[in-house]
């Protein structure tokens, strides 16, 4: 299970980390399983879903004044482009 999850999350783990995480996660999942007892009526579910609304705004481009500072943080670059390892 941990291997599959670390693949999904794109995180390398050492074998010790994997076995520690397995123990920790099992323990936590065991604890949070108590949620299954909580009784939620369909009326409450409907209300819950109607409570949230999206907040929209105009999508206007704003010029950022310090692009150099962003480029300076790149770990590898060529001119002003971010350089990454081979994709394929």
């Amino acid at each position: 299970m941990i291997k599959k999850l670390s693949n999904l999350a794109r995180i390398s783990l050492s074998p010790e980390e994997e076995s520690d995480l397995k123990k920790d996660i099992e323990k936590v999942l065991d604890y949070v399983n108590s949620l299954k007892e909580a009784n939620i009526s369909s009326k409450q579910q409907d209300y819950f879903q109607s409570e949230l609304s999206n907040i929209f705004r105009q999508d206007i481009v704003v010029e950022f004044d310090d692009k150099d500072a962003i480029i300076k943080s790149f770990n590898d670059k060529e001119e002003r482009f971010l350089k990454v390892k081979a994709i394929l």
């Binding site: 794109r10 790149f74 770990n75 590898d76 990454v84 390892k85 081979a86 994709i87």
Partner: peptide, 15 residues
């Protein structure tokens, strides 16, 4: 770890 932050340069490809 590409645009900023900790980077391990031994990686063989992007993934």
């Amino acid at each position: 770890g590409l645009r900023y932050g900790f980077s391990d340069n031994s990686a063989k490809d992007l993934i």
